[in-house]
Amino acid sequence: MSASNQEKEPLFSPKNIKLLTSPLNLNNPITVQVLGICSALAVTAKMKPAFVMAVSVTIVTAFSNLIISVLRNGIPPRIRIIVQLVVIALLVIVVDQFLKAFVYDVSKQLSVFVGLIITNCILMGRLEAYAMSNKPWPSFLDGLGNGFGYGMILLMVAFIRELFGSGTIWGFHLIPQSFYELGYKNNGFMILPPMALILIGIIIWIQRSRNPQLIEE
């Protein structure tokens, strides 16, 4: 499919690069498009599950975008939601079985949230907004870019929550023992679900202060 594309423009033309980079900041799926928050918050208490989740979502988004974009002219508009759900569900089953086989402990930690990638709004949102009306290669890049944007926020939140909540990063103790002897305590509150919401609120605050064009009325 990329062969037909190459005649008109190179694989990594500035436009295609922009598809990859804009979701990282000005078009971030979580903080700007408000997509995919459902499963984003619950897996961010530790870095490792957050990273696995981010990779899984990126793979599913990129490939579902690619598949739907290849099929886009053959899908009857009336049943497109079902077709999209079936494609996504198939990819998620593959990812789920893969996780169960190779990183079983993380798969147990993520519990239902792997399955919930199916109803992750990023997937449907990007399929409807982009893949249904664009060529396969740009759609693939768009999916990849949005997966990265999603993963970036996930890792930022997970970094803060794990560092202050458990004093570790990726399971390694980062806060030296002498701190604890001086009376430092892990902030158990960071591990609890509401903190993820408040942290994302603060990330949105920082991002919008730096990019005033994003401010809502």
Partner: peptide
């Protein structure tokens, strides 16, 4: 509400506070 926090941002923070109450 501070301008950059309007809309989405403040909704997240309020939901967090409601979550604390529900805890």
């Amino acid at each position: 509400v501070p301008a950059p926090l309007r809309g989405l941002g403040i909704t997240f923070i309020i939901t967090g506070l409601m979550g604390i109450a529900f805890m």
